[in-house]
């Protein structure tokens, strides 16, 4: 690992100042479960590592009522909330059990004790689990500068709408009528070879797929079919094209395409 300057600001404002003064390539550190391995492999060589851990108010879980025409309930998860905290939260288990189950399936217990929601989505690994929740659960990503619709957050392979120096502070997940996440885990890393989150909000159904493409994506044909009839059988015959899907030593694109169909059906069944 190359050495770097380490900073531990006590406020978002101080963190923003450090970004400006942080040299060529400052980087934010949340739980470090991806960044630290990347530093060790010299995939990243930041000038300054800005540790967000001392900033108050970036973790914790709460619920709130929507405003205006959107009266829906949302679960607000602070960016530095660990996967273990989400998985163990009584509130998350009661409101969005699929989200608690998703967090419980990330990595292993020790990774879940350190890894955070904000770190995961800011990193935007194409095989990470949380992006599926951000898309399927109508999430809103709150930063130190603005609020970004979940639909506009992921831009591509390890790419998000975040601007340099922008810090995710929380994610608001809308509470669905029902939802379920099904993952075919890569057996060594537990990352999603393919993960599908199906969520139903009244007449609207969202199907978000992670692990299969360069970035999380929705499957409109499945969403339309499920909106008409919310049953696994409604997905019969709906194929996802393997074109543009990931192909690697673990799974070829056509296998991933097949898994999307299988996992989507299982998720619908798990919704009950």
């Amino acid at each position: 690992m190359h050495d770097f300057k380490y900073a531990r600001p006590a406020s978002l404002a101080a963190a923003a100042t450090l970004v400006k003064k942080g040299g060529a390539d400052p980087v934010f550190l949340a739980g470090g479960q991806t960044l630290i391995p990347a530093l060790k492999m010299r995939l990243r060589k930041p000038s300054t590592v800005i540790d967000l851990a001392a900033i108050k108010g970036l973790d914790g879980i709460a619920e709130k009522k929507g405003k205006g025409k959107d009266k829906g309930l949302t679960v607000v998860v602070g960016a530095l909330t660990t996967h273990a905290a989400v998985a163990g939260s009584k509130l998350v288990k009661a409101r969005i059990p699929a989200l608690a189950a998703l967090a419980e399936g990330i990595g292993d217990p020790q990774v879940r004790h350190r890894g955070t929601l904000g770190g995961s989505i800011a990193n935007a690994d194409p095989a990470a689990d949380y992006p599926a929740a951000v898309i399927a659960l109508h999430a809103e990503v709150v930063t130190n500068k603005r609020s970004i619709s979940g639909d506009a957050f992921f831009k591509g392979f390890f790419e998000t709408a975040l601007k340099p120096g922008e810090i995710v502070t929380a994610v608001n997940f809308r509470v669905p009528d029902k939802a379920a996440y099904m993952k075919f885990a890569q057996p060594a890393s537990r990352f999603a070879l393919v993960g599908v989150l199906v969520a139903k909000f009244g007449a609207e159904v969202r199907v978000a797929v992670t692990g299969a493409g360069a970035s999380v994506f929705r499957v409109p044909d499945m969403e339309k079919a499920l909106a008409k009839s919310f049953s696994a059988a409604a997905l019969d015959g709906i194929k996802v094209s393997p074109k543009d899907l990931n192909s690697d030593i673990h799974a070829a694109a056509d296998y991933r395409a097949h898994l999307i169909g299988v996992l989507a059906k299982r998720a619908v069944e798990a919704c009950g």
Binding site: L29, D51, V111, H113, R114
Partner: peptide
């Protein structure tokens, strides 16, 4: 660390 198991190879000492 503070009562929870973590991988000490994936945590900076300063953290």
């Amino acid at each position: 660390v503070n009562g929870r198991s973590v991988k000490s190879c994936t945590m900076l000492a300063v953290q």
